[in-house]
Design a protein around this nucleic acid. Structure first.
Lengths: 177, 177
DNA sequence: ATTATCTATAGATCTATAGATAATGC
DNA sequence: ATTATCTATAGATCTATAGATAATGC
């Protein structure tokens, strides 16, 4: 309950964020306007400003929520298969593809440093054996795969699972160590 | 001169695309409106519609131009250092960072299949020894690095050149072949 | 008393079309 | 004749604020 400011757990703020997320995930970022959000909440648009100072604070709350969830799925994957970059990559891909608009909204802009971002990065850092350069490169690979897929940039017939495998193999230490 | 439809080489259309690009690169995607574009061309907004059917066709022309240039720099890098993924990655990064808004505008949306996209992919495909899965994974890495950097997603002190090196190493066959 | 909500609206935009007018090419 | 341009404007939005009104908590 200490993080209520960024993650309202009850009442109108919580309800507004839930509605914003539902709206975003269902109809994409263009649909996320204060008016349409208010409609979903069952209130008039100006009333939203009693709970959030502006639209960007609503977006920031959504992004923080997404990062917290990402940290959660990566930590779970790590627990299930410690040290496996493959397991992390699969969890990352699965989450992103399940929440395309939320993923792109969060990752497609600069973010004020958020605790959850560090939490999400930690499992990958550990899987990279503490090599932060390698961890960042691996993250870039996973992020690149996701955004290229979500933006429809791969050719129609492309075998994306095979491409993921190829990248995972490249970032997984070989038999020689 | 055969690709005049997508790459006007003279007259108003060429001038409009040049102005659109200058506007985009200088002020970002939000600044690219038909009104501001018209201002730069020295004409009123409705006149633009005599040369382009709608705004999206202007954006499509910019994207095609970017892809042609990317193909050009990658081909040049390949000529200078055949088979080197490192050389391609460096060229890709350099181009993207020199044209951040143009890069993001082009890559951040689905594109009608364009010849130039295939041309840009070819050098990477060859550097990957014809392994298209590996080529796609390597592209995802490079794209991911660029967008994470452009969107300010890496921590302030991060050594991004080192991260590029780590990724390049991962995608470069080791001494064992 | 305080808080949430409402109506009304300021103040900015946008993309794109209709129809008139000027300029160019045969 | 044809083409480019202009003025005027339709038709949609947006975010956010001001000030009045209703509802809640002491």
């Amino acid at each position: 309950m200490t993080d209520l400011a960024i993650a309202p757990t009850a009442g109108r703020p919580r309800q507004i964020i839930a509605a914003a997320r539902a709206l975003l995930e269902a109809e994409g970022p263009e649909a996320l306007t204060m008016r349409r959000l208010a409609d979903r909440v069952g209130v008039k648009a100006p009333s939203l400003y009693k709970h959030f100072p502006d639209k960007s604070s609503v977006v920031a709350a959504l992004a923080a929520e997404m990062l917290r969830e990402t940290a959660g799925v990566l930590e779970a994957a790590e627990r299930a298969a410690p040290g496996s970059f493959s397991a992390l990559a699969t969890a990352y891909r699965t989450y992103a593809l399940a929440h395309p608009h939320l993923y792109l909204l969060t990752m497609g802009r600069a973010l004020p440093a958020v605790e959850a971002a560090d939490a999400a990065a930690a499992p990958l850092f550990r899987a990279a054996g503490g090599d932060e350069d390698r961890a960042r490169a691996a993250w870039a690979f996973a992020h690149g795969m996701v955004v290229l897929e979500l933006n429809g940039r791969f050719p129609p017939g492309a075998d994306l699972s095979a491409a993921w495998e190829a990248g995972i193999a490249a970032f997984t230490p070989g038999p020689a160590g």
